[in-house]
C-alpha cells in the first residue's frame, strides 16, 4: 500500500538573477512498512526533498499525496494538522525539548493530536519501554546519552502511529555501533507499525537497514538498487 506518493516535484530558489533548482522533477512512492534510504553528496537536494515530502516546504511544481491530501495544495492553516496525523520526524541532532522529560517529549505530539494527557503519558511510557528506555522515563534530555536521545526522538516520531516517518541523518551524531542500532530500530519500527520510513543520510554503514536505496544528485533522484 502506498503511504506517500510524490510526482514531478520541483523546488526552485531564486539567487539574485539566477535560479537554483534544488529538487528537479523528483517522483517517489513510499510503501507502508518499507525503509527507503536516500544518499547523496552535500548540497544535492536530499534534505530539501525531505522538507517537500514532509510538508515543511511547498514545491514550486508537482504534487505530494498523503492519505488523500495533496500537500502542495493545502493551506498553511491545514498543513500542521496533516503533518501531526501522518508524519513522524527524526532529526540529526535529536531536537528534544530540553525542559521536558523523555516521557513528556514523547507525549507532546500526541497531545498536539488531542490525545488526552493521561492516555498520552501511558502510551509514551509503553513506547519508551519498548525502546529499552523504561528506566529513563523521567530523565531530562541532558541526562541521556546520544543513543538514548535518538531513541526518545524515534519514540516521539512514532507516537501518533504515523504513515510516514522521515529521518534526516539519524545516525550522524552517533558512533558506528549506535548508528547501526538506530537504523535497525527504524527498520523494526517500519515492520511493526507499517510506517513507511524514509532516511536521508551520508552514512553508508546503514544501507543494510534499507529495503530500497536511492541516490540524489544535482536535485535529481535515481534508483541505486
Amino acid at each position: 500500500m502506498d503511504a506517500l506518493r510524490a510526482e514531478g516535484i520541483e523546488k526552485v530558489y531564486a539567487e539574485g538573477d539566477a535560479e537554483v533548482r534544488a529538487v528537479d522533477g523528483a517522483s517517489i512512492t513510499l510503501k507502508a512498512g518499507e525503509v527507503t534510504l536516500i544518499m547523496g553528496p552535500s548540497g544535492s537536494g536530499k534534505t530539501t526533498l525531505l522538507f517537500l515530502l514532509g510538508g515543511l516546504l511547498r514545491p514550486t511544481r508537482g504534487h505530494v499525496w498523503v492519505n488523500g491530501d495533496d500537500l502542495a495544495a493545502l493551506s498553511e492553516r491545514k498543513l500542521p494538522r496533516v503533518r501531526i496525523r501522518n508524519f513522524g520526524f527524526v532529526f540529526q541532532d535529536f531536537n528534544l525539548l530540553a525542559n521536558l522529560t523523555a516521557r513528556e517529549n514523547v507525549q507532546v505530539p500526541m497531545e498536539l493530536a488531542r490525545v488526552p494527557t493521561a492516555m498520552a503519558a501511558d502510551r509514551a511510557g509503553k513506547l519508551l519501554t519498548r525502546l529499552e528506555l523504561g528506566s529513563r522515563l523521567d530523565f531530562l534530555p541532558e541526562k541521556l546519552s546520544g543513543g538514548e536521545k535518538q531513541r526518545v526522538s524515534i519514540a516521539r516520531a512514532l507516537a501518533n502511529r504515523p504513515r510516514v516517518l522521515l529521518a534526516d541523518e539519524p545516525t550522524a551524531n552517533l558512533d558506528s555501533k549506535l548508528g547501526k542500532e538506530v537504523a535497525e530500530l527504524l527498520r523494526r519500527a517500519a515492520s511493526r507499525t507499517g510506517a513507511a520510513v524514509l532516511m536521508v543520510s551520508h552514512d553508508a554503514r546503514i544501507v543494510d537497514a534499507a529495503d530500497r536505496l536511492l541516490l540524489m544528485e544535482d536535485g535529481r533522484l535515481q534508483a541505486m538498487t
Partner: peptide
C-alpha cells in the same frame, strides 16, 4: 532562547495558535 524548540514543535505539527 527556545526558538529552535518552537521550530521543532512547528515541524512535528504544532500550529501557530498552539
Amino acid at each position: 532562547e527556545r526558538s529552535k524548540e518552537y521550530g521543532v514543535l512547528k515541524a512535528i505539527g504544532s500550529g501557530n495558535g498552539t
